[in-house]
Design a protein around this nucleic acid. Structure first.
Lengths: 192, 192
DNA sequence: GCAGCATTACCGTCCGGTTGGTATGTTATC
DNA sequence: GATAACATACCAACCGGACGGTAATGCTGC
């Protein structure tokens, strides 16, 4: 009665649901993102879905909280490897975004976040809160503040470009963007 | 029989419909963007709406084409005032985005574009085409290409930040971004 | 200038399917 | 045996869109 347990851990089920919701959102868009569509890809019934997420809004909240948490963890992990504490989150933010090649998974995540926020504009504040927390935990002296902002803007722009395919960005250009992080170019010298 | 004409110009009606669709999309989100919701704000019936846009997809196409056209016109107008032809579209792109203060209308437009693309992912290619056309009409020598890209990325990032409120960008910082366009800083010297 | 007719702009209702959600079991675990 | 994790059955509201109709306008030949 252990490996053969019928009953599953609720957190695992929740995670599974969220993953499927992300998948549906990414490749069907907002119109296709319905409870039925999500449950159709799951090995259990609609009742189960409603048991874990009592409403569509609750599910969407779960989705963006998951995505924001994932994003935060990734940036923080990247930042931990940076010896210079000043503005390290901003640099990590760019590094996390510029990683090449962009995986299909990355695009799915971005698209899902966008779809979720588009479906329910109120969800934007949750995403915003997560991103601002990342920025506020980033000690930067006033002189480096503008540079940190610029890094974040470039990262966001790149993220959007990857999502929409608006700009062609070659691997070389991606690497070139990383050179913004080398000492003396932008904010790396803001330490002392 | 002129001012009192019963019948309206179809283009005016179409434009009116698109405007309302944008309005609904911006403040109701994707879930609230229904044909009924749009027609409820219009002085005529659902039949008329279906007459001008035979399907919801057609309406959404109309919306993003309108938005892309507006965006293109704005950038081109801005670019026309730039004496240096090299990379002028890229600079205009940033200038058009950085304009301060950001109007409510600007935010609505961005939000509507996002909602439209989220509802129907296929619409992304239309937006992309418009943006790429803007970039391809912009003669830049290879040396200035990376700088032009960076300007565009910053503009996109700022656009996204304005939409989501992810970063606080003060008016001073906005002006500081414009200083990227002054000769000698980025690509303004790429002319000769 | 006007009869005749096709076209276009628009109306209002109805429909079949879908959607988010409820209500009520059933089963397994503590 | 209480509670949590599901299943099954169902519903009311809504949504996109079809449809039949009407009236204003444009066009054509005379």
């Amino acid at each position: 009665m252990d490996a053969q347990t019928r009953r599953r851990a609720p957190e695992a089920t929740r995670a599974e649901i969220i993953d499927m919701a992300i998948e549906v959102a990414a490749d069907q868009g907002a119109m296709g993102l319905t409870m039925d569509a999500v449950v159709a890809r799951l090995p259990f019934s609609k009742g189960a879905l409603l048991h874990h997420f009592p409403s569509k809004l609750a599910l969407l909240e779960g989705v963006i909280d998951h995505l924001a948490g994932q994003m935060t963890a990734q940036v923080l992990e990247e930042a931990a490897r940076d010896p210079n504490p000043y503005g390290r989150n901003a640099r990590a933010y760019l590094r996390a975004t510029v990683n090449d090649p962009v995986t299909e998974r990355d695009v799915s995540i971005g698209r899902a976040a966008l779809v979720a926020c588009a479906v329910e504009p109120g969800l934007i504040v949750r995403w915003r809160a997560a991103m601002r927390a990342l920025a506020e935990d980033d000690p930067v002296d006033p002189a480096g503040k503008d540079d940190a902002l610029m890094l974040r803007l470039i990262a966001d722009g790149l993220w959007m470009s990857d999502l929409f395919g608006t700009h062609e960005v070659s691997p070389e250009q991606r690497k070139a963007l990383l050179s913004l992080l080398t000492p003396g170019v932008l904010l790396a010298e803001a330490g002392a």
